[in-house]
Design a protein around this nucleic acid. Structure first.
Lengths: 349, 349
DNA sequence: GTGAAAGCGCTAACAC
DNA sequence: GTGTTAGCGCTTTCAC
């Protein structure tokens, strides 16, 4: 009774090159040549080998080849994002995948949930699998732990967030510039009392956007003393609460700048529930689906995650092709899209 | 001048176990034991080995271990979805990742864009890398080409779409039941002239949902002759055009059932542009972000991609643990969420 | 054109 | 406790 429950792999064992070679009556190296499309094999031999391989359902084992091959490449890339279940990461991921796929490279993805504990763990899991390169949205305080691996020649590209304690290729949105544009847009529409609703200050992009917001106020000569600032908002609920508190305060803002998607949506819910969505102006950082179908349409500073992913993948691939120029920094521009909420004028002044 | 531009990996070469063993003054097998946390090593030796490993920035090479290890596992899973840049796939992916990660398994993802050409290519890319299992959203007409690999013992779980020409573990939404529920909801609100807007008939879920729609009409004794049916809609634009055509026809429908996300949104755009969004009822299959913030809120039959991914990963992991019961079929229920558009009553009757 | 031998970095099996 | 040997499935090198 071999209906055993032993946890080993079921099914007949997998054929190897040696099996194919024996069946085809050739040497193992000839099979290798055929399977890899190398030259100097007679067409008759190719046919015999192919037939043998097919009849055994033989599939080349890339792992073994990687190990022995001169460059040692696994044709594999590791991608670290905040979560694969999130539109920004998804679009970035897709752009990376497209570039990788064109080169026969497969992509591992790992979600960190913006939890700095998980970053190092995920990086090491990829490194032990000998990925050829790493594209990472970092969250931990310091990336200097990556230096040894970088010296070993593993190319890395930092996306969306600037690395700390180490220099490396970086591809990020123009967070500061985008936030300034958003804020200036509100200023240009006559607002002086503009609230800032932001994400956790631990996150690089949140700090940059906050910086851009205050830069714009400063340039316009707005005293920042009375500006309402609520930070460390990381989900819709907390953003809704924060916005409600502002609306219920003695001097509610006439406009609000929200530094991130979930915060934008949370704020909109609050405005709706107070019936203030047609009277309080809002510009959000980062575009989102259906922002144009809401009433009023949501004015945003859109990022370009597709371009960020494309540029990062291109950088990694260039590095793999031997490019060893100094670390490069690529800033992807943002675009203000006026749809309604950002063009609401202040009621009184 | 060794500032050569040869495409080989830059940096000093990576240390191996042998290097660590030499530096620590022990045998290579002892290093292996330490790096893998195996017992029967004195704590003094452990300390010496760890120190040597750290000073060399040594990282275990899992590839080599996989090759030699008895079970031959790579601790890797391949996931095929329609696109990682799509909320349903993203949520499913995340659920798979969470289950895999808990077992030290890394996940490869590949987007097929519902292009049947790409399915086999992607599967083979994963198989050559010897993934331990495959979770696949199929699109090609026939999956019998997977049979040899299944016999070799690679567990596979089909998600979202039933396989053809082969039997295997399957996790899908209750497409037929959900579509029936949606249609009955509209019938219960007094609609008789309900249009069907559907995706490409090539896609399994589209056929099932269409089936459920007609089942419900049949049960209600509605003659299906005059029912407007427009199919092969795969994006917002085509759905908008289709809905506009219906609205502009001699006898526009009083309600519409849309079989998919993008179709739902496209139809809503059309209704808006004709000012019919408060008078034409709509129920969509599959929920989407902000469906509750639109005006009116969009009534949908929600799927549970998180549960689909979780169940699929659980199935794969059970198989890897030696479960060899016959192929199982898991139907994940759908939920009707009434938000407004589905409760609009017909104007005339 | 073809194949034999060595070896990629590791673990299995077994000896001490 | 620890080390030695063989070998995972393949590619490299080099001989013929």
């Amino acid at each position: 009774m071999s209906q055993s429950s032993k946890p080993a792999r079921a099914g007949r064992s997998r054929p190897t090159m040696r099996h194919v070679a024996t069946l085809a009556g050739v040497g193992i190296k000839t099979v290798s040549r055929v399977m890899n499309g190398e030259p100097n094999v007679s067409s008759a031999t190719i046919a015999r080998v192919m037939e043998a391989a097919q009849s055994l359902d033989y599939q080349l084992d890339e792992r073994a080849g990687n190990l022995r091959r001169a460059d040692g490449r696994t044709r594999t890339l590791g991608l670290l994002v905040s979560s694969v279940d999130n539109p920004f990461s998804g679009t970035l991921h897709r752009a990376v995948e497209d570039a990788a796929q064109a080169r026969g490279i497969a992509v591992f993805a790992s979600s960190l949930d913006d939890d700095s504990q998980r970053e190092k763990v995920a990086v090491n899991a990829f490194l032990r699998r000998r990925v050829d390169g790493l594209i990472l949205t970092t969250i931990s305080e310091d990336q200097s732990y990556l230096a040894p691996e970088m010296r070993h020649g593993t190319p890395m590209v930092f996306v969306d967030r600037e690395p700390v304690g180490i220099s490396g290729d970086t591809v990020i949105s123009d967070n500061r510039g985008g936030a300034m544009t958003a804020t200036e847009h509100l200023l240009n529409h006559g607002h002086h009392r503009i609230a800032y609703l932001g994400d956790r200050r631990e996150i690089y992009t949140a700090r940059e956007r906050r910086g851009g917001f205050f830069d714009a106020l400063g340039r316009a000569g707005i005293p920042t003393g009375g500006i309402p600032v609520i930070e460390d908002l990381h989900n819709e609920e907390s953003a809704t609460k924060a916005m409600l508190a502002l609306l219920d305060s003695a001097t509610p803002p006439t406009a609000v700048f929200t530094s991130q998607n979930l915060v934008t949506i949370g704020a909109i819910r609050a405005l709706r529930s107070r019936g203030a969505h047609h009277t309080t102006a809002l510009v959000g950082f980062d575009d989102f689906q259906l922002s144009d179908l809401l009433e009023p349409g949501v004015t945003v500073v859109a990022q370009d995650p597709q371009e960020i992913g494309r540029a990062a993948a291109e950088r990694i691939i260039d590095r793999l092709d031997g490019d060893n120029c100094p670390a490069r920094r690529c800033i992807v521009p943002t675009t203000l899209i006026a749809r309604g909420t950002g063009e609401i004028l202040p009621l009184i002044n």
